[in-house]
Amino acid sequence: MRSTDVLIDGFERVSENVHAVLDGITADQLTHRPGAEANTIAWLIWHLTRAQDVQIADVADRDEVWTSAGFYDRFDLPFEPSASGYGQSPDEVARVSVGDPALLADYYDATHAVTVDYLGGLTDDDLDRVIDENWDPPVTLGVRLVSIVDDDAQHVGQAAYVRGLLD
Score class of each variant (00 low, 15 high):
20 A>L: 11
93 V>M: 01
161 Y>C: 04
104 L>N: 07
92 E>M: 12
95 R>K: 15
79 F>D: 01
130 V>N: 07
59 V>E: 07
112 H>I: 01
88 Q>E: 12
125 D>I: 03
103 L>Y: 09
100 D>T: 02
91 D>Q: 14
25 I>H: 09
4 T>C: 01
140 T>A: 08
6 V>W: 00
118 Y>E: 05
11 F>S: 04
149 V>E: 08
130 V>R: 02
72 Y>D: 10
82 S>I: 06
150 D>R: 14
28 D>M: 05
78 P>N: 12
160 A>Q: 11
139 V>C: 05
121 G>W: 13
124 D>R: 11
167 D>W: 02
156 V>N: 05
138 P>T: 09
125 D>G: 00
114 V>I: 10
43 W>V: 06
48 L>W: 06
93 V>D: 12
155 H>G: 05
99 G>Y: 07
37 E>L: 05
165 L>D: 05
35 G>D: 13
65 V>I: 15
153 A>E: 06
137 P>V: 04
131 I>G: 05
65 V>A: 06
147 S>M: 11
22 L>G: 05
166 L>G: 03
123 T>H: 02
114 V>R: 14
45 I>D: 08
94 A>P: 00
40 T>N: 05
90 P>T: 06
38 A>V: 01
23 D>K: 11
2 R>W: 00
71 F>S: 01
149 V>M: 11
147 S>D: 12
58 D>L: 14
105 A>E: 08
24 G>S: 10
17 N>L: 11
146 V>S: 04
13 R>W: 07
125 D>H: 04
12 E>K: 13
95 R>P: 00
93 V>A: 02
95 R>M: 14
83 A>R: 13
4 T>M: 10
103 L>K: 07
78 P>Y: 08
111 T>G: 14
63 D>E: 14
89 S>A: 08
146 V>F: 13
134 N>T: 15
72 Y>F: 15
13 R>D: 07
38 A>C: 11
95 R>V: 01
3 S>M: 15
55 Q>K: 14
109 D>T: 13
68 S>H: 02
37 E>M: 08
143 V>T: 11
29 Q>F: 01
93 V>F: 12
84 S>E: 14
118 Y>D: 04
44 L>N: 06
65 V>S: 04
147 S>T: 07
28 D>L: 07
128 D>R: 08
160 A>D: 05
117 D>S: 15
154 Q>M: 12
76 D>W: 09
100 D>S: 04
142 G>C: 07
141 L>H: 06
17 N>K: 14
23 D>E: 13
155 H>L: 09
63 D>I: 01
158 Q>R: 10
130 V>W: 03
126 D>C: 06
84 S>A: 15
116 V>F: 08
161 Y>Q: 03
49 T>N: 07
150 D>E: 10
43 W>C: 02
48 L>T: 04
154 Q>E: 13
33 R>F: 00
159 A>V: 03
88 Q>S: 15
37 E>R: 11
128 D>V: 10
75 F>M: 01
59 V>I: 14
109 D>F: 08
123 T>K: 04
102 A>N: 07
8 I>R: 14
58 D>N: 09
16 E>A: 15
125 D>K: 07
108 Y>P: 00
100 D>P: 01
